[in-house]
């Protein structure tokens, strides 16, 4: 991953230049857990996307009165398809758990990614603005951050959810009809998880602001916005990337907590979280109903945590040799 670059300014010395990303990638590759995590995550994403080519959502919602709660591997009778084998078994309404895992997983991962995007955008923006402009802006934004940080996230989230959970209508997104609670859960998780990142960004910006290249840009009259986006943003990308990765995992697991406490995504829209929660009553007799969602949540979050750990090491400027 090295490139030979003939620099114009230093024609006499041909050197090997490694961009920071190349170095990071090399180090990431060496992080065995992170590589394993990448493969696991890739496999899960394949499962929830490619899976839809084999099974339609309607097939996942199909109920079977005489094939309820069939254990994995059993063959049940379907009135249209005849005898079919249920790889992951069926649930209390006779629905195929495998297909529910695919479509529920889509929602869980989508919740993770979109709420992460909201959280990262808010966190970066607020941190940048507050660190760069200072003064009143900083004081205002910092106190908002601090207020939000003073209430544990789950408590804040639960109080907010209680205000929104009564809306039970559905919306259509990307051709799937889903419960509106999905949107609330995404917005709320996003809106309650940006504070730590914003603090990190703010302190980074504060120190960057004093550095020469920023001072120089200011001196020659580059506009504030341009400085923020062209000079500051690229330099704080490392913590943002790490926070973004870990944020997806946190959001997926938070959704499961909300479901457990009765404030999560409402049926009929399935997520790994609410499928898992519905299955905990029958730990022994219907083990496949919690083992599969539990496995998917844990392994997705685990993979994401491995990746985040790898990224953190790889992007840590202190450990660049």
């Amino acid at each position: 991953m090295t490139t030979k670059v003939a620099s114009l300014r230093q024609p006499e010395n041909e050197v090997e230049v490694h961009s920071i990303w190349q170095i990071a990638f090399r180090r990431y590759r060496k992080h065995r857990m992170a590589v394993l995590g990448t493969f696991i995550l890739f496999a899960i994403i394949l499962f929830v996307t490619v899976g839809t080519l084999f099974y339609s959502e309607a097939a996942g919602n199909k109920t079977r009165l005489r094939g309820r709660e069939a254990p994995p591997g059993s063959i049940i009778q379907d009135r249209d398809l005849g005898d079919i084998r249920m790889i992951m078994g069926t649930d209390a309404a006779g629905r195929d758990v495998l297909i529910r895992m695919i479509y529920g997983g889509q929602i869980s991962i989508a919740i993770g990614v979109t709420s992460m995007i909201i959280s990262i955008t808010l966190g970066t923006l607020i941190g940048l603005l507050s660190g760069y402009f200072g003064g009143v802006v900083d004081r205002f934004l910092s106190s908002v951050t601090e207020v939000m940080l003073s209430i544990p996230a789950l408590i804040l989230l639960l109080v907010l959810s209680s205000a929104f959970r009564e809306d039970t209508t559905t919306v259509e997104i990307f051709g799937r009809t889903i419960s509106r609670t999905v949107i609330y859960v995404v917005l709320l998780i996003g809106a309650t998880s940006w504070m730590r990142l914003s603090r990190i960004v703010r302190s980074q910006v504060l120190s960057l602001k004093e550095q020469e290249f920023v001072q120089a840009a200011r001196a020659i009259g580059v506009r504030d916005l341009a400085i923020v986006f062209r000079h500051l943003l690229p330099n704080i990308i490392a913590p943002v990337v790490v926070a973004a990765t870990l944020g997806i995992g946190t959001a997926i697991i938070t959704e499961a907590y909300l479901s457990f406490l009765g404030f999560g995504v409402q049926p009929p829209t399935a997520t790994w979280g609410n499928i898992l929660n519905g299955a905990l009553n029958q730990v022994e007799s219907r083990w496949w109903l919690w083992v599969f969602p539990g496995f998917f949540i844990t392994s997705t979050v685990l993979a994401i945590n491995f990746i985040g750990d790898g990224l953190r090491d790889a992007l840590d400027p202190r450990s660049i040799e």
């Binding site: 109920t63 039970t168 009929p268």
Partner: peptide, 22 residues
């Protein structure tokens, strides 16, 4: 909720479509 799902299918058999809300 399970009753809802099954009734939805029974009604679909005679040509009536329902939208499930919980």
């Amino acid at each position: 909720n399970n009753y809802q799902l099954f009734i939805q299918e029974y009604l679909a058999e005679v040509g009536i479509g329902v939208d499930i809300q919980i």
